[in-house]
């Protein structure tokens, strides 16, 4: 019976487990990817500790997490609950459209926003500027770059949550809804006391996944701003990537990766507890 698992496990161990263990080891070495690694103990972590961009990146990841725990989950819940009021055919149409941004490649979404919306030359922002509105490209300002990037990811993401929440809402037992109805509950009371408690496990799971994904965010930052201007939108994953492939400081990149994983690990612990309660 183990034979059935061999291909999956072999690929997984070679691609993920062994390199992951090597990353843990590399975090304690100085290595440029070519010459022999030199053991430096906690040197990489000490270097990160006194590295300004590292702290900016960590802070940005935390801001990102807070943002994504609230805004898209709120939008998703609102839209999903409103879909319950709409006839079936209508709700399917809304769902399909809301889901479209999810299936478009991140590189394309990033470029559409960059060129067609934010750009001062070819974008809607530039057009509004010409009309005299005081509006600037958020990606070019240190104070707004991170939020400019987050907006794009938000657009790409909230439809997924809406669809998931809607699927969960429809599975809330009919008797509970009937009971609330007989008691004369309004739509909002229904949400507050019946529907939201009914899909609590799904909301919890999505919040845990949000924490994990918020520390993995890479594509949009890398494509839209490369972490700039002046590291203002840098996150840990782009920082690690830059350290490994641009600065050829693989040891520090590995140490950064460990920090990312640490945050993920806590969330993963809860994720596995919830998932395995359901499926094992």
């Amino acid at each position: 019976m183990w034979l059935y698992l061999v291909p999956t496990l072999a690929i997984n161990v070679v691609i993920i487990l062994i390199p992951a263990l090597l990353t843990v080891a590399l975090a304690f070495f100085q290595w440029d990817g070519i010459s022999a690694p030199v053991f430096i103990g906690l040197g990489n972590f000490a270097a990160l500790w006194s590295d300004g961009p590292f702290w900016t990146a960590l802070q940005n990841n935390l801001i990102w997490t807070a943002l994504f725990l609230t805004v898209p989950i709120g939008m998703g819940l609102l839209a999903a609950s409103l879909l319950l009021v709409v006839p079936r055919r209508g709700s399917t149409l809304f769902q399909v459209v809301y889901f479209l941004p999810v299936i478009i490649a991140t590189a394309i979404t990033a470029r559409v926003w960059q060129g067609m919306i934010y750009s001062p030359v070819t974008g809607v922002f530039g057009y509004l500027q010409k009309l005299g509105l005081p509006i600037v490209n958020p990606l070019s300002q240190t104070s707004t770059a991170l939020f400019g990037v987050a907006t794009v990811d938000l657009w790409h993401w909230w439809g997924f949550l809406c669809v998931i929440f809607f699927a969960a809402l429809r599975q809330v037992p009919q008797e509970q809804i009937e009971a609330a109805r007989i008691e004369g509950a309004s739509f909002w009371q229904m949400m507050r006391y019946v529907l939201l408690p009914g899909i609590r496990p799904t909301i919890m799971l999505m919040m845990i996944m949000t924490v994990i994904w918020s520390f993995l965010v890479f594509d949009f930052v890398y494509i839209l701003t490369q972490g700039g201007p002046a590291f203002s939108s840098e996150v840990l994953s782009t920082l690690a990537y830059r350290k490994a492939f641009y600065d050829l400081n693989v040891g520090q990149a590995a140490a950064t990766a460990l920090v990312i994983s640490l945050f993920g690990l806590v969330a993963t612990f809860f994720y596995i507890r919830i998932q395995s309660r359901e499926s094992v």
Partner: peptide
């Protein structure tokens, strides 16, 4: 089997950066 399931779930949430660099140089 529980251990295997647990391991697979854990790898779904592992950041790509955790294995990307040694994998690339390898």
């Amino acid at each position: 089997w529980k251990v295997v399931t647990f391991y697979l779930l854990a790898t779904t949430t592992a950041p790509i950066q955790l294995f990307l660099f040694p994998l690339y140089f390898g």
